[in-house]
Design a binder for these strands. Structure first.
Lengths: 196, 196
DNA sequence: GCACGAACATGCACTCTATGCAACTTCTTT
DNA sequence: AAAGAAGTTGCATAGAGTGCATGTTCGTGC
């Protein structure tokens, strides 16, 4: 069990990974996801097809790898919020880490368009976001009052918040980025939670 | 555009389709989704591999075809609810069509276990449910008061309700069916919508 | 009852994703 | 400089999915 993998190697691996993902994303944006083969991505990136599959478990992963990382960021940020803060406020603040990711609006729009434009990608996208739950729900649960159904409640809240973000995100894409993502998010949450 | 395809043919097609899906589901439950090839399903059903793909667009469809139909049932039921009824009540009632589907508890549990037990299936499942939105959201929108963001609000509400159902469903599987699905659903909705 | 055409079933060839394996190269460490 | 780990690659193979061409079945009009 050589637990240490040499920090240099680990780092280059991360860099290469992100380079490969970016190459893929560019191609997907140009040619479309289904119309782009893994082979083409490999050639464009200057590696072998086999190596690509060493870095990513699947073609889909190539397109969606960033989502997993985002989930971790969000969960981490949520964990840093004061425990007595209103839950939905904490969630909103946690989601705001997305604004801190350095990426141009066009790039973001292109990426989102790729993701929503393909059925299987949309599915993977939904699933990956759903897995954000697994990270966030336990943190929420710790904040909830005792209840027989605490686990369920925590998961429901996490899922609902993520869903609102997702809905806002879709609308944002539909509006071609001509709106503030978090303004849309707030409207979504309000619609869901407002009694009546 | 020969819109009429002979009612007999249409009907047999539906029957065969559901027979094939059932065969597949049985195999998936026994051997596991990834461990079962389309070839095996074809053999078990007594048709050719190619024919299977005439009835289903993909292996995933073979496992998830029922979900699309469920979405249509729910939307239809929602459309029948009185327009002045509380939105969330209407949604709850609409979801109740699921209880009317004739299927044993064990079968239902087996099916759910298959769906949640495999990553790509879970993704497809999430996506298919997300597409329920497209059916339900327009109906919700018609009920909402005028607002700049009506479309977004309707989609958010639909998505949140479906997500609560999904969360309840997952919990139900986790509890091995030892709970009332709609009791769990109510708890989920309450947790999300309760202020504070 | 029969013949026509549409829908259906199937086999075949082919593309693409994905994985295991073995050989080879390149780093890291001592 | 040598050992060993990590990384890269090609090759072989399985399985999903598609287009096409052929044969079969079945509903319909005569």
């Amino acid at each position: 069990m050589s637990s240490t993998v040499s920090p240099i190697r680990a780092q280059t691996r991360v860099v290469v990974r992100s380079l490969l993902a970016r190459t893929a994303l560019d191609l997907f944006a140009i040619k479309g996801y289904d119309e782009t083969t893994v082979e083409e991505v490999a050639v464009a990136a200057g590696v072998s097809r086999r190596t690509l599959f060493n870095y990513f478990r699947s073609k889909e992963d190539l397109a969606l790898s960033s989502l997993s990382e985002q989930g971790e960021l969000i969960a981490a940020r949520f964990g840093e919020r004061p425990a007595d803060e209103d839950l939905w406020t904490s969630l909103r603040m946690a989601f705001h880490v997305l604004d801190e990711i350095e990426i141009s609006a066009e790039e973001r729009l292109a990426m989102a368009t790729v993701m929503f434009g393909n059925e299987s990608l949309r599915a993977g996208h939904a699933e990956k976001q759903a897995r954000w739950q697994d990270l966030i729900a336990p943190l929420i649960e710790a904040r909830l009052p005792d209840s027989e159904r605490r686990r369920l409640e925590a998961r429901a809240i996490a899922a609902a918040a993520i869903t609102c973000l997702q809905t806002a995100w879709e609308e944002w894409v539909r509006l071609r980025g001509q709106a503030e993502l978090f303004e849309l998010y707030d409207a979504a949450v309000l619609a869901v939670r407002d009694q009546g």
